[in-house]
C-alpha cells in the first residue's frame, strides 16, 4: 500500500528525455512504462474524471429509461445508458491502472467522488425534466462528447487511446439514437416541437461550458496546456467549441429550432462563431457540486454504493 514512485525516477533526466522523445516520435506509452509524475497525475485526473462523468452521466438519462414512450425507445435508451456505464468501466480501468503505484483502486475513486475530490463533468449536474432532454442529451451532449473524445483518439497514452477507440465507435450509435428521438419530435406535433426548443433553451449554457473555459483567465485554472504538451490532445477548448458550433448549429437551424443566443453569428473574416459567453462563475459553482442536481445525483450513487456493500463484502472472501 502507498508505495511511492521513487523520487529518483522523477529527477532522472535521461528517463525524462527518452520519454519525451518517445511521445514526439508518436510512440504510445503503456501502463508499466516509466512516465514523469506530472504525466501520470495529469492522466489520472483527466481519465478518472472522464470515467466518473460517464457513470454520473448515466443518471440524468437513466431518469427516462423506464419512461421512454415506446417499446423501441425503451430498448434504445436502455442500450445507450448501458453504454455510458460501459464507457465508465473502460475508462476507470485505465485510471485504476495508473493509480496502482499509489495503492489506490476503484473503491478510492468512489470515495473521492463522494468527498468531492473527484469532480464530474458540468453537464451532468443539470436537470433533465422532459423527454426532450433525453433526446437533447443524446444529440447535442453526446455530439459535444464525440468532438472532445475524437480529439484524443491519438493520445500518447496507449490504454486511453484504445479505450477511446472503443468508446467513439459506440458514440456513433449514440449520436444516431439522439438524432432519432429529436427527429421524431421535430417532425411531430406542436407540443413535441416545443419540447425540443424548451430543452435547447435549458441546456444552451451547459453546452457552451461543455468544453471548458477558453483559457485560464476565465476561471483561474486550465489543464489544457499540459495535456497538449504531453500529446494527450491536440486542440484547445475554444477550437473544440468552434468545431461543435460548425457541426451542429446548421443542423439545429435546419430543423427550425431557434438559437437561444440571438446575437450569435459566424464571422467569415475570422472564420469563427461569435457568441455570448456563459456565466463562467456559475461553471465554477457547478463543478464544485453546487449545480441544480449535483447533490441528488451524488446521493443516488452513494446510496447504491452503500446499499450493495454487503454484496461486495460477501464476495471479497474466497468461496468454494
Amino acid at each position: 500500500m502507498n508505495e511511492k514512485v521513487s523520487s529518483q525516477q522523477i529527477t532522472d533526466d535521461g528517463q525524462y528525455q527518452r520519454f519525451i522523445e518517445r511521445i514526439q516520435a508518436g510512440e504510445k506509452i503503456e501502463a508499466d512504462d516509466w512516465m514523469p509524475e506530472e504525466y501520470r497525475k495529469t492522466l489520472i485526473k483527466l481519465i478518472s474524471m472522464h470515467g466518473i462523468s460517464e457513470i454520473m452521466g448515466a443518471l440524468p438519462e437513466k431518469e427516462w429509461v423506464p419512461k421512454a414512450p415506446t417499446l423501441r425507445r425503451k430498448l434504445g435508451i436502455m442500450a445507450k445508458v448501458q453504454d455510458e456505464m460501459g464507457h465508465g468501466q473502460l475508462l476507470l480501468r485505465v485510471a485504476e491502472d495508473l493509480m496502482k503505484p499509489y495503492g489506490k483502486n476503484r473503491e478510492n475513486i468512489m470515495e473521492d467522488l463522494f468527498s468531492g475530490d473527484l469532480k464530474f463533468h458540468n453537464v451532468f449536474h443539470m436537470e433533465a425534466p422532459t423527454w426532450g432532454d433525453a433526446g437533447l442529451i443524446g444529440w447535442l451532449v453526446d455530439g459535444a462528447a464525440i468532438i472532445s473524445q475524437t480529439n484524443m483518439l491519438d493520445a500518447s497514452y496507449g490504454p486511453y487511446a484504445r479505450a477511446l477507440k472503443r468508446i467513439c465507435a459506440e458514440e456513433v450509435f449514440h449520436a444516431q439514437h439522439g438524432e432519432s428521438i429529436i427527429m421524431a419530435l421535430a417532425e411531430g406535433t406542436p407540443e413535441q416541437r416545443a419540447m425540443i426548443q424548451d430543452s435547447i433553451n435549458r441546456w444552451w449554457d451547459a453546452l457552451l461550458m461543455f468544453f471548458g473555459p477558453s483559457d485560464a483567465s476565465t476561471t483561474g485554472t486550465s489543464k489544457q496546456d499540459i495535456t497538449i504538451k504531453y500529446g494527450i490532445r491536440t486542440k484547445t477548448n475554444e477550437e473544440l467549441r468552434q468545431d461543435f458550433f460548425t457541426k451542429y448549429i446548421p443542423r439545429m437551424l435546419s430543423l427550425g429550432l431557434k438559437l437561444p443566443d440571438d446575437t450569435m453569428y459566424f464571422d467569415t473574416d475570422q472564420q469563427k462563431w461569435i457568441y455570448q459567453q456563459p456565466d463562467w462563475s456559475q461553471f465554477k459553482e457547478i463543478i464544485k457540486n453546487n449545480g441544480p442536481k449535483s447533490k441528488d445525483r451524488l446521493r443516488l450513487r452513494k446510496i447504491s454504493y452503500e446499499t450493495n456493500e454487503w454484496v461486495r463484502d460477501a464476495l471479497s472472501k474466497e468461496i468454494s
Binding site: 443518471l59 429509461v65 436502455m78 442500450a79 445508458v81 448501458q82 447504491s304 446499499t307 454484496v311
Partner: peptide, 24 residues
C-alpha cells in the same frame, strides 16, 4: 431497467442491462 446505474458494481450494471434488454 430501474436498476440501471445502481447495481453492486459497474461491470454488473452493464451485464444486467443486457438481460433487461433481452427480456424487453
Amino acid at each position: 431497467s430501474e436498476w440501471l446505474g445502481l447495481a453492486p458494481f459497474i461491470e454488473e450494471d452493464v451485464a444486467f442491462s443486457s438481460i433487461s434488454q433481452d427480456t424487453m
